[in-house]
Write a protein that binds this DNA or RNA. Sequence first.
DNA 1: CTGTATCCTGTCGGATACTG
DNA 2: CAGTATCCGACAGGATACAG
Lengths: 103, 103
Amino acid sequence: MNEINFCPLDYTMNLIGTKWKPIVLFHLLEEPLRSGILQKKVPGISNKMFTQTVRELEKDGLLIRTVYPVVPPKVEYALSTRGKSLQYILESLDKWGAEDCKK
Amino acid sequence: MNEINFCPLDYTMNLIGTKWKPIVLFHLLEEPLRSGILQKKVPGISNKMFTQTVRELEKDGLLIRTVYPVVPPKVEYALSTRGKSLQYILESLDKWGAEDCKK
DNA sequence: CTGTATCCTGTCGGATACTG
DNA sequence: CAGTATCCGACAGGATACAG
């Protein structure tokens, strides 16, 4: 890597520029969701990639993982403040896609 | 893939959701650039990935490739109308990154 | 200058089975 | 229900050499 022409866009893409991350975040915009529900909203994602994705998002402080000590286990994911600050971008991406695929 | 919960965001990410595409497009926002210049603005990218990236962007109609029949060869890349319509999003991603990495 | 063609390695990412 | 572990094929992506 070279930092000479580093641009913030690059920084952003390193956080959310993967196949699944934006979609996961997008589905959390409205409300926190428990694990199973969230995963079902991202069809095509494998169990492995789902876990890996939310783990990285948690590590980067974009979402918060809450474990409820009940049986059966219940885990809920919610956007952090930092994650919520992406709302505008996620919706822009969504809107652009909606407009563009009409053509 | 499953289309039940297909969202436009997914569509957008399939077009520009890679490591290099947004950066390449971003550097073309101001003005068309010839190949060598553009590539130098994306440090860290290998020759192979650069060619591959612009080829896909061209195929998807996001940029236009113009070959000038001169010696030495001159090739220029410019955003298409469709590519320009991403300006807003690219700048949002850039701004977010600039804001966020202050913290 | 611009782009292509190999080769080669690491990682992505799915399928499956299993634990608490 | 939620998550982990392993296996394994596919491909992203770099280095290098070469062509027009």
